[in-house]
Design a protein around this nucleic acid. Structure first.
Length: 501
RNA sequence: GGCGCAUUCGUCUAGUCAGGUCCAGGACGCCGCCCUCUCAAGGCGGUAACAGGGGUUCAAAUCCCCUAUGCGCCA
């Protein structure tokens, strides 16, 4: 055993957690869920959230992905106390900048005799591995270099043959303490001597992770279930460094509808894609939390603050979670309902912009808010607002062929429309209650003539909007104003004149 | 191939640790009805599950064992 820096200043009351993504792609939904669990756990107590980039794969790591990850987390409402952008006393927070540390720690193991040089060429290992597997035997490194004689070592050194450093796995029963799965025990004979420093001088994944978690004083490691068996290696390393292993939480993985790991072929997989498709961050976060977590009662709609208050990490379900777009859509709708008219308009505006709907964008703000509010019930994703809102760009007297058909077919259509004009009056503006009163007035006139309301209301909609579908009538009156609506109806009557109706 | 983890309606889950209150509750989806000027939204109702097999027990979704399947790691 080696004396390490494993003295944890923090404890369960002040946990230190980390989210450690690889910047090799946009923030994946599965990673976002891991980040959320870490964050909720930290914020639910007086904890510290650390962000660390595991960018040792220089080939595939990109700064633009780092930016996407940072932006996506912020968009979801997740923040961090230490990280590559904000710094902190345990930095640097990129693995690519921590190589000297890994070397130092690897060296300690080598000097203590619990790591050894392995001169086997990677291609040679690969060849032996394939051969072993072909025989149906499970592959484990054969420790050929553990027992090299001095002469061979000297020869290799003279040849300047590159070597990797392997961890000499001790004989022991390894216990991984996991909050969701209890104590997972594995006999170390199942584990082969893994590489801690590669022959190209870079650090092995397991070493880097453990050294970082030790030196960053991480108390709780919350990550995907795919690392559960890796945790066995990690625990051995922690102990080799004389450090106390953290508490582990290996949460279930996120799967696609077919049960395979959620990936591109299932559709959108990155947080930024969901953002572009018109999902609200509140809804996405709510949904991600609800996959695997439940408050124990029947509530389902949660804000971030609710979640911080109620979330318990040990309440997570241990079984896999299949991503269900339908439920996410429903939740998004629920969160759309919770927005004020102003908030909804602000959320939708970027999408109106990308649709180049300038006629809507250039509207006075109060009209724009009415327009957006009027299509609220048609919105599942924010992009859904675009089509219905186009109704407000219709020119008076323009009709869809279907609307014109309906108009022709309506009994006493001229009479009905004249009644509408009468009731609308000459006011230029109407607030909600005034608009409702006007619609009520139309109903009453219908009743007076012993007509069904439809005989007046339907022609009114058709005449004003030129369409058979659209928002509640009161919004039309609020948007164009009573006089404006009357004007549009007159335009319709002219069209009917020309058609001889 | 070895090892590990998991398994309640199609999906997410409650219930499992402390066995009876569960012929299993909620939600999404789907279906139907109601409301309704349209599309929606909303209201009401319906559909549907303890992976299989053995135990233990007066009693098991809950405890034990085996099998199967899925997923993961070694890769």
């Amino acid at each position: 055993m080696i004396e390490g820096k494993g003295n944890r200043e923090s404890n369960d009351a002040n946990p230190r957690v980390r989210f450690a993504p690889s910047p090799t792609g946009r923030l994946h939904l599965g990673s976002a869920r891991t980040a959320l669990f870490n964050w909720l756990f930290a914020r639910g107590s007086v904890g510290t959230m650390v962000l660390r980039f595991e960018d040792t794969d220089r080939e595939r790591s990109r700064v633009e992905y780092e930016k996407d990850i940072l932006d996506s987390l912020k968009w979801m409402g997740i923040d961090w106390d230490e990280g590559p952008d904000v710094g902190g006393e345990f930095g640097p927070y990129r693995q690519s900048e921590r190589l000297p540390l890994y070397r130092e720690y690897a060296e300690k193991l080598y000097e203590a005799g619990i790591a050894y040089r392995c001169f086997c060429a990677p291609e040679e290992i690969q060849r032996r591995k394939e051969e072993t597997i072909r025989k149906g035997i499970s592959w484990r490194y054969d420790r050929r270099c553990l027992t090299l004689d001095d002469a061979s070592v000297r020869r290799f050194e003279e040849e300047k043959r590159p070597y990797a450093l392997r961890f000499k796995v001790p004989e022991m029963s390894v216990k991984v303490v996991d909050l969701l799965r209890g104590v997972v025990q594995v006999d170390s004979s199942e584990i082969d001597d893994f590489i801690i420093m590669r022959s190209d001088g870079s650090a092995g994944f397991h070493l880097a992770v453990v050294v970082d978690d030790i030196t960053m004083n991480i108390t709780h490691v919350i990550r995907g279930d795919d690392h559960l068996t890796n945790a066995v290696r990690h625990v051995m390393l922690f102990e080799a460094f004389g450090a106390k292993p953290p508490v582990f939480v290996h949460h279930s993985l996120l799967m696609g509808p077919d049960g395979a790991k959620l990936s591109k072929r299932h559709g959108a997989t990155s947080v930024s894609e969901f953002r572009e498709q018109g999902y609200l961050p509140q809804a996405l976060v709510n949904y991600l939390a609800l996959l695997s977590w439940s408050p124990g009662d029947e509530r389902e709609i949660f804000t971030l603050n609710d979640l911080v208050r109620e979330f318990r990490i040990d309440n997570l379900s241990a079984s896999k979670a299949i991503f269900d777009f339908d439920k996410l859509n429903w939740l998004n709708r629920q969160h759309v309902k919770l927005l004020s008219s102003e908030e909804l308009a602000d959320a939708v505006i970027p999408f109106i912009e990308s649709a180049n709907l300038f006629e809507i964008l250039n509207l006075p703000r109060e009209k724009l808010i009415i327009a957006v509010e009027s299509v609220r019930n048609n919105i599942e994703k924010l992009t859904d607002a675009i089509e219905p809102i186009r109704i407000y760009t219709a020119k008076p007297g323009d009709f869809s062929s279907k609307a014109l058909e309906e108009l022709k077919r309506s009994p006493d259509v001229r009479r009905a429309l004249e009644i509408c004009i009468d009731i609308l009056g000459t006011e230029r503006e109407a607030d909600e209650s005034a608009a409702e009163k006007i619609v009520e007035g139309m109903r009453e006139s219908a009743a007076l003539k012993d007509w069904k309301p439809k005989r007046i209301l339907w022609p009114f909609r058709l005449a004003v909007t030129g369409s058979t579908v659209g928002p509640d009538l009161k919004f039309l009156i609020m948007f164009w104003g009573p006089a404006g609506c009357a004007e549009r109806i007159r335009a319709t009557l002219k069209v009917l004149d020309n058609l001889g109706i």
